[in-house]
Design a protein around this nucleic acid. Structure first.
Lengths: 348, 348
DNA sequence: TTGAAAGCGCTAACAC
DNA sequence: GTGTTAGCGCTTTCAA
């Protein structure tokens, strides 16, 4: 019946109080030692440290959170981790967070507007100090819903000029640069895969806009026949859109997938139809997913600055968390990451 | 100077106390309403609910956690999310957790033994009720390190017979079934890509064992020449190993990638070398990644029961969390998920 | 430099 | 059926 004896797997964890008693000091002193407070006499510190070690004391994070109002956790909400882009984004955010001593809680919304909106009001978010939010269903009309009572950083191209900090990529410029790259290699009829019919917001619209700008600047016509529309951006969609274009007998000398997954899907269909890449047709992607390095042929693509986006999102969120409660909040920040073309085998 | 007036973005959140005052009842009653305690008079409940709505009261999860000793968060530790297998595993775990009202915090270890061991003792884990741990660097000799003072479920093939619950796949049987599948289709010289030289534990060893069993059962010789060794299991490794085998002039009529990524890498090299798949050579993978559906040709593979693993891991962890602190703990559980061959284009 | 004590917001034993 | 109150473990004034 002895209390505190190490009977099973689990013994009540030592508290600050336990350590204080063991070391013969007050809890305040132990707290000072634990938190590396400077004004502690060396001998006292040693005594306390010894007690900490003996009792294998670990501070109770929950209690600390309740008291301090900070958890050291940030939430990241993405559509799905099985989409490589978001998996690699999450990877980047977790790494960046770790550098800042934070840990990341991941929510999947499925890219569904209702679930996204629901998430914003969820008490689950209370467990974290702030949110990095990458919506796919919400759009500009929902911007007011982003005015939430906790720090948040918005990612993506669904909403601009919202009431929160926004970190994203230079979609138009990057897509324009990608198209110019193809034009500079002598391509004149560049098919696009992944446009969204009638849509004016989001990555698809912006990238298509960059494409159009490059054509215009080069004096090339914008041919509606060359635009392949898809609903989603899975590999299968790229495949179907490409096949439809082939079936219609459209002629082209390059394909620009609005993301890598689409480009890889399109590439498959082209190869099935005996097109040689890059001999017969150039293929360009967008996102710089890891797998573009290993496709056959390796896919030329646009690196939209994903690592920078992750790092910046965490940093901005952390700034905002730090400024929480202060009278004058800085106005919403807009950060655009640098992009770069990664030239691989599919265009040379 | 009025307290509680809605000045900026942030107003101190309402507490139970605030709601109690507003509704003219005690905190206990409010707590009862919030927690759906049954014995509350309907009129009282309505009154309290009104106050909750007016004040937009949300329970403070941190305080609740401190009091209850449970956070509603579980941690998932994987090597890297940019490896599709782990991204898809994480996806499954998050979905399963959500069904049980839990939220998931993700840690990346890089598959590094030291970081894995360090993580097990990290105070960061205190923020969650338990851990689903998928190590890649630790091995059987480290089993004792898994005897941690919090609920944990182990995944993977690095450690068996450890002191904790273990949920994993039937590696040997599944690899054997995959090999038998190839043999049943008339294949006699089946190359393997991804073996780990001299290794006796882990997925590579087990799957190779299943392969050997199938050969033996069919009276086919185990030819060392057909075994392609790799260090890691990235696509690039599959590519290099396959190329080496081709360069040596080894003859084969099928390739079994010990995971999908390897198989896809190998497939690329084969196609580059003008082999037709499946006409000249069959290719089989392992993992049933989403992308196997979209490769050219679509890859036949083994679904190791990933969804079942995720669901079971969460359920077992939850059971263990519930039984925390009780005198007699159930002995460590071992659960093996069901597998299935997914036949696609690369073998027909 | 260290100690005493209040209280973060909630739950649950105990009283009425 | 509802109220009172003692903590959960920590940080942090305020005193000494």
């Amino acid at each position: 019946m002895e209390i505190g004896k190490d009977v099973g797997r689990r013994t009540a964890a030592a508290t600050l109080q336990d350590v204080a008693v063991r070391a013969g000091v007050s809890v305040k002193t132990v707290s000072n030692v634990v938190n590396d407070y400077t004004h502690v006499r060396a001998t006292t510190r040693a005594k306390v440290q010894a007690a900490i070690d003996e009792l294998k004391y670990q501070p109770n994070m929950t209690a600390r959170s309740l008291r301090s109002g900070r958890t050291g956790v940030i939430s990241l909400a993405v559509p799905e981790l099985s989409l490589s882009y978001f998996a690699e984004l999450a990877d980047g955010v977790i790494r960046a967070a770790e550098r800042h001593g934070l840990v990341v809680l991941i929510e999947q919304t499925g890219g569904d507007r209702d679930r996204e909106i629901e998430l914003l009001a969820s008490p689950r978010l209370q467990l974290s100090d702030g949110l990095i939010f990458s919506p796919l269903g919400m759009d500009g009309g929902d911007a007011h819903l982003l005015d939430v009572p906790y720090p948040m950083v918005l990612l993506g191209e669904r909403i601009f000029d919202g009431p929160v900090d926004h970190v994203t990529m230079r979609n138009v410029e990057a897509a324009r640069a990608a198209t110019e790259f193809l034009i500079s290699r002598g391509r004149r009829r560049i098919a696009v895969i992944g446009a969204h019919e009638g849509e004016m917001v989001g990555s698809a619209a912006l990238r298509l806009q960059g494409y159009a700008q490059a054509l215009a600047a080069a004096g090339l016509p914008f041919d509606e026949e060359l635009i392949g529309y898809t609903g989603l951006w899975h590999r299968h969609d790229g495949l179907v859109a490409m096949k439809a274009m082939l079936d219609k007998g459209v002629e082209f000398d390059a394909v620009f997938g609005l993301n890598d997954t689409l480009a890889l899907g399109a590439m498959r269909v082209l190869q099935e139809a005996k097109y040689k890449i890059p001999d017969d047709v150039f293929v360009m992607g967008f996102d710089d997913l890891d797998e573009t390095r290993y496709s056959l042929p390796a896919l030329t693509t646009v690196d939209p600055g994903r690592a920078e986006i992750a790092e910046m999102a965490v940093r901005v969120l952390l700034d905002r968390i730090g400024a929480r409660g202060s009278r004058d909040q800085a106005p919403p920040l807009e950060h655009l990451a640098e992009f770069a073309i990664r030239e691989r085998e599919s265009t040379r």
